[in-house]
Design a binder for these strands. Sequence first.
DNA 1: GCGGTATGCCTAA
DNA 2: TAGGCCTACCGCG
Length: 274
Amino acid sequence: MPEGHTIHRAARDHERDLGGRRVKVSSPQGRFDTEALADADGCASLRSVEAYGKHLFYRFEPDFVVHVHLGLFGRFHRRRSPAPPPRATTRLRLEGDTITIDLVGPTACDLLTPEEMRAITARLGPDPLRADARPRSFYAHLARSRSPVGAVLMDQSVICGVGNVYRAEVLHLLGIHPDTPAKEIPPETARAMWRLVVGLLRRGVEEKRIVTTRGLVLAKPRERVLRAESTHVYGRRTCRSCQGEVATYTLRARTVYCCESCQPRVGAAAADGP
DNA sequence: GCGGTATGCCTAA
DNA sequence: TAGGCCTACCGCG
């Protein structure tokens, strides 16, 4: 689940559910220290929730920031209050009057100062889901980088919020082989890429899952069938567009999915590909 | 019950 | 580049 769309959706939902309210904060697992944040009753006032790429920031009064990064395994569980007892693995529980949010398995869940929060966002590239996103630095990086475009799209300091699924799908929809050196992407294609990422991520926020196809989806969420039908190449053996074989290989320790017939290698990528 | 796997990312070498 | 870390689920025996 956790690419940028998941994080932005969580920010929206959690702010609606808990924003502007006193929230009981606890760490059933014990790995998040609530002492500095919470009062004697274990409560704190949540001002707002902000997403930046795959990072979530909960702003508490007076000046605390709880930073959450789901990593590969992290998940939220949203429950009606009073919620059932938490699992032993629940890192953080935010308990409001009506809704309780449980956080399980995050890579990061830390208490930060606003300065430390800014240090994190300063490292990130433009986030296509944010209203303040300016893609200029993304275009500039593409234009000068010799790295494979498939690696550049996953680099959170270049464009943030894109993960392995969106990477695979964006490149497929544009007919670009992931090994293509970024600088070979023409400027007009780079602009189309940004627009496509914006559109797909927004759709992901609304649908609460990644869908890059127009096809009817009949299965229930979380079934394999559904995921396969919701993508063109990611997680598939055959390409949804041409039924050809989907190639998989490892790039920078992540599995790349691509259809070499829909996404032919061109130029240098064909010459020095694997 | 065990091992493999996954939409991520950091650090050491 | 390899290894570590976080958790849940699934297929296999």
